[in-house]
Amino acid sequence: MSAPAPLLSATTLARAFGGVVAVDAVSFSLAAGETLAVIGPNGAGKSTLFALIAGQLRPDRGQVRLEGRDVTRLPPHRRARLGLGRTFQAPRVFGALGLGEGVHLAASLCLPAARARARARMLIARLGLEALTDRPVPALAYGDLRRLDLALALATSPRVLLLDEPVAGMAPAERAQLMTLVRAIAAEENLGVLFTEHDMDVVFGHAGRVLVLDHGRVIADGPPDAVRRDPVVRQRYLGTP
C-alpha cells in the first residue's frame, strides 16, 4: 500500500529576477500535522519561495503540488479554494469592516453560509477575539491584528497554512502564545504549517522541522537540533554558539 501524498510539495522550484537567482532548485514536502520553518539570511529567497507556493509568483522551472494536485500555474484565489491559507509579513485585513464581519466574509468565500458562520464564531473564540468582535479593524492593537490575520487565513478551513513572519513586531510573550496556539490548532485540524521567522527562539521552540536557505538553495533540512548543530548552517547563518 503506497504512502499518502504529502499535503504540499515543491519540486526543483526556481525563480530568477534578471541575473539574480532568488530560488534555485528548491525541493521539499510537507505532511499533515507537520510544522516546517524556513529560515536563512536576508536575501536567501524565503519571501520568493513563499510567493511561489502561494501563487503570487510563477516559477521559471519546477512544480508546486497541493494534496497531489499540480497548482503551479493556478492564481492565489484558486489555491485558497483548494486548501491553501496564508498570512503576510504586514497583516492584510478588511480595514473597512468590523473584526467579526471580516472573519465571516473570509469564511464565506469558500464555505457554505451555515458553515461559514460557525467557522467564524469558532475561530474568534479560539483566538481570544470575542470581546473585539464588533471593534472596527483600524482600532485594533497590533497583537490583535496579528491574531485577526491568522483567523482570516484559517477561516476557509485550509489544509496547508503559510505563515510569513507571523510574530514580527509582537512582544516576546505574545510571540510564544500565538505560536503555541498555531501548533494546537494545526494538531486539532491535522494541518500542515509552513512558516518563516527571524526569531530563532520561535523557530527552534515551535518547528518540528527546519529548512535552511542560502542564496536560493537548500543547505539543510531536518530536525531542529540537527539543523542548529549543522556546521554549514552555523557558518552561514546562525554563527558560533
Results as ranks from 00 to 15, higher is better:
Pro138Ile: 09
Pro138Val: 10
Thr240Ser: 14
Leu8Val: 11
Ala187Thr: 14
Thr87Met: 03
Arg229Leu: 13
Pro4Glu: 09
Leu181Asp: 06
Arg61Pro: 01
Val103Gly: 08
Lys46Phe: 15
Met170Gln: 07
Ala120Lys: 02
Ala90Trp: 05
Val20Gly: 00
Asp144Cys: 08
Val182Glu: 06
Val202Gly: 02
Arg119Phe: 08
Gln89Asp: 07
Met1Val: 11
Leu238Lys: 01
Asp199Glu: 01
Ala176Pro: 04
Tyr237Trp: 10
Met179Arg: 12
Arg209Ile: 05
His198Arg: 11
Gln63Asn: 00
Leu82Pro: 07
Phe50Ser: 00
Val232Gly: 01
Gly83Met: 09
Leu66Asp: 09
Glu67Leu: 13
Val182Ala: 11
Ala155Asp: 08
Leu148Met: 13
Gly222Cys: 01
His77Met: 06
Ala120Leu: 09
Ile53Ser: 01
Leu66Thr: 08
Leu152Ile: 12
Met200Ala: 03
Leu194Thr: 03
Leu161Met: 14
Leu111Tyr: 00
Val193Lys: 14
Gln56Asp: 14
Ala125Trp: 04
Val160Ser: 10
Thr196Gln: 13
Met170Ile: 05
Arg209Ser: 11
Arg119Lys: 09
Arg69Ile: 10
Arg61Trp: 05
Ala171Ser: 13
Leu36Trp: 02
Thr87Trp: 00
Asp149Phe: 04
Val193Met: 12
Leu36Ala: 02
Val227Lys: 01
Thr48Leu: 13
Ala187Lys: 15
Ala10Ser: 08
Leu99Ile: 06
Val212Cys: 08
Ser27Tyr: 11
Val182Pro: 04
Gly102Ser: 15
Pro4Trp: 12
Arg65His: 08
Gly128Phe: 02
Val103Met: 00
Ala151Thr: 02
Gly239Phe: 06
Ala176Gln: 13
Arg58Leu: 14
Arg147Trp: 02
Leu213Pro: 03
Val160Glu: 12
Arg236Cys: 04
Ser157Tyr: 03
Gln177Ile: 05
Thr180Ser: 15
Ser9Leu: 11
Val227Thr: 10
Ile124Thr: 01
Pro223Lys: 03
Pro172Ile: 02
Leu213Lys: 03
Val103Arg: 01
Thr11Glu: 15
Leu140Asn: 13
Gly143Ser: 14
Val218Glu: 04
Ala37Ser: 11
His206Gln: 05
Pro224Arg: 00
Ala16Gly: 15
Glu101Arg: 00
Leu162Glu: 13
Arg65Cys: 04
His198Asn: 05
Glu130His: 05
Val193Pro: 04
Leu148Asn: 12
Ala3Asp: 04
Leu129Phe: 08
Cys110Gly: 06
Asp164Glu: 12
Val64His: 02
Leu74Lys: 15
Asn42Ala: 06
Ala139Ile: 07
Arg146Cys: 04
Val160Trp: 10
Leu57Asp: 12
Arg92Leu: 14
Gly208Trp: 05
Ala120Met: 07
Arg175His: 10
Tyr142Ala: 07
Leu148Lys: 07
Ala107Cys: 05
Gly192Thr: 00
Arg126Asn: 01
Cys110Phe: 00
Arg86His: 09
Thr11Met: 10
Arg135Gly: 03
Cys110His: 12
Ala25Arg: 06
Ile124Arg: 11
Val182Lys: 13
Thr87Phe: 06
Ser157Glu: 15
Arg159Asn: 07
Glu174His: 08
Leu36Asn: 08
Asp214Leu: 11
Asp214Val: 11
Arg209His: 09
Gly40Glu: 06
Asp230Ala: 08
Arg61Thr: 14
Arg229Thr: 12
